[in-house]
Structures are given as structure tokens and as C-alpha cells.
Amino acid sequence: MREILEAYGADPRRWPAGTRLPVGALVAEVKAAAEADSILDLAKAPVYSPDAIANLLASLPSRQGAEVVRFPGPRSKPRLSWAFAAPLAASLMLGIYLGAAGSVGRFLPQDDVAWLDDVSDTGLEDAEDVAEENQS
């Protein structure tokens, strides 16, 4: 097409006979499309209100609105109540005192002491007697 236009110009009557129909049809298509474009150009959108953008900006919600979630503040350290701490401290002091005085056994049940004595009664002292009885 470019060669035809460069060689013969825009008037189809000067174009070679064999090219007139296809090139002419293409030119007609381009012309029709250009006409359609110019008709579409008629449908311009109206200009928006002069204060439309100002109204928009004025209508923006504050960023401090509901969308903003407040983070919780730093958590304070839990305070030890004296009512809770005093008995703990007293029992600790008592334990240290008793341990240092060596008097823990006085506070243990007597049954336990007896059971400890029984531990020495293992029966090993009778082993030789038992062996002699068996031989006899």
C-alpha cells in the first residue's frame, strides 16, 4: 500500500488496475473507521463540578476514626502483695532457722524414727547360725 501511495499518489484512478479494488477497499475501511472515530468524539463527558475534588477531600474520614486500632500500652509488672509475700518470707526464715539448729528430727513423726531403727535389723547376723543348722 505504501509503495502504491508513494508511486501513484492518493487518487485511486492513477493506481494500477489490479490494485484498485483491494487497496481501494482498505482505504474505504480506514475512512469509515475515521468517520466513526469523529462521531465518537462528539460524545464528550461533561466537566465535573468545579468543587467536586474539594468536596471529596472535605469528605475524607479522619484517620483517627474507627479504622484505627489502639495498641495496648506497656503492661505493668505484677506487684507482689505483702499479704501474700509475708507468710512466704516467714516460712522461709523458719526453715532456715530449723535447718541451722539441727532440730528437724524433733518435728518428724516417731513412727518414722522406729522404722529407721528397724532398717539395721537385716538378719545378716544370723547367717552363720542358719548355715550350721542346715548342715546339721
Partner: peptide
């Protein structure tokens, strides 16, 4: 129509501003 078009455009930008 112009009124709806302005409302729609405004809604778009408010939506963008929010998030």
C-alpha cells in the same frame, strides 16, 4: 449522569483513603 458519576468517583477515593 453527572451526579452518579461524581458520587462513584468520590466513593472510589474515599475507599482508597481508608485503605
Amino acid at each position: 449522569n453527572q451526579t452518579d458519576a461524581e458520587d462513584v468517583a468520590q466513593e472510589v477515593f474515599v475507599k482508597l483513603w481508608k485503605d
